[in-house]
């Protein structure tokens, strides 16, 4: 299939005397490269400038806290089930007395890890979450030297109390409505198969 009309049919025809001189060809080539002197630079000077990203860009995850600063996650494991790359692991724990300010509900995630090397940033965890606890933000994942460092624990995922992350773009009513649709794949999975029925990590 012809995608563009820029393709050229190659032939082995003998060069004319003018072509054998090469000079016109060379000059033509130099004009082409020279004309690029006056074209727009494609470079984005990264730390100072960043490329504009879409509002719904899916990057580094965040574990949200509620208005009081308590973690929303209840370690239900739905995100881990929904994850096609099996990047999420968690360990739950029971909330003790006096920890009400830290965790919203009686059960919370003691360990919550996402392997950023496995994660494909599809956002299914976000869709699966019934507690509005996990979101994908537009932050880029850091570079690291070791593979182990790419397994992000709660320290890197949970948002700081004094430094909230705005995910209002992802919490719109439409999204909430969308999540309630019965026909969605992960909801289906939750309905038909039981969670404890052989979904290992």
């Amino acid at each position: 299939m012809q995608l563009t009309n820029r393709s050229k049919v190659v032939s082995n025809k003998v060069q004319t005397a003018m072509e054998q001189l090469y000079l016109p060809g060379i000059l033509k080539g130099m004009l082409i490269t020279g004309s690029h002197l006056f074209k727009r630079r494609a470079t984005v000077k990264y730390p100072e400038e960043t490329r504009p990203v879409a509002a719904v860009y899916r990057g580094w995850h965040v574990l949200k806290r509620d208005e009081n600063g308590a973690e929303r996650c209840t370690a239900c494991g739905l995100c881990a089930v929904a994850c096609p790359a099996e990047a999420i692991t968690m360990e739950s724990a029971e909330r003790k007395k006096g920890e009400e300010g830290l965790y919203r509900e009686e059960k919370y995630a003691k360990v919550y890890e996402i392997n950023m090397l496995r994660c494909i940033f599809c956002g299914l965890c976000e869709e699966a979450c019934p507690k509005e606890a996990i979101f994908l933000t537009d932050r880029l994942v850091d570079t690291e030297y070791e593979r182990e460092d790419f397994v992000y624990g709660k320290s890197k995922l949970t948002e700081k109390v004094d430094k909230r992350i705005d995910v209002s773009k992802r919490q719109t009513l439409e999204v909430a409505e969308f999540k309630k649709l019965p026909g969605l794949k992960h909801n289906e999975m939750w309905d038909s198969k039981k969670i404890d029925k052989g979904h290992k990590h």
């Binding site: 690029h36 630079r41 494609a42 470079t43 000077k45």
Partner: peptide
């Protein structure tokens, strides 16, 4: 860099 629409060392 300029000929290739880049910025070059800066």
């Amino acid at each position: 860099a300029l000929l290739q629409d880049r910025v070059g060392p800066d």
